[in-house]
């Protein structure tokens, strides 16, 4: 397991992360980002890809 942190001051809710890790991130019906604060190791590559694709660089993996 590892932890995920999104800096919600930076996040602009573009939702680019959703395509890389659909099990972790989603845009809700109000266009706001929702995410799981921790994930199984099998999601690590996907979350890393989400962190890379985030235009605001707001996603952090915390070990």
């Amino acid at each position: 397991m590892f932890k995920i942190k999104v800096d919600m001051e930076k996040c602009q809710h573009y939702g680019q992360c959703v395509y890389e890790a659909p099990n972790i991130f989603k845009l809700n019906e109000n266009d706001k980002l929702e995410y799981l604060a921790s994930a199984d190791e099998s999601e690590r590559d996907n979350v890393k890809a989400s962190a890379d694709i985030c235009p605001m660089q707001a996603i952090q993996i915390i070990d």
Partner: peptide, 8 residues
Amino acid sequence: VGMKSTIH
């Protein structure tokens, strides 16, 4: 403009 869920 806005409407991000719709655009997705």
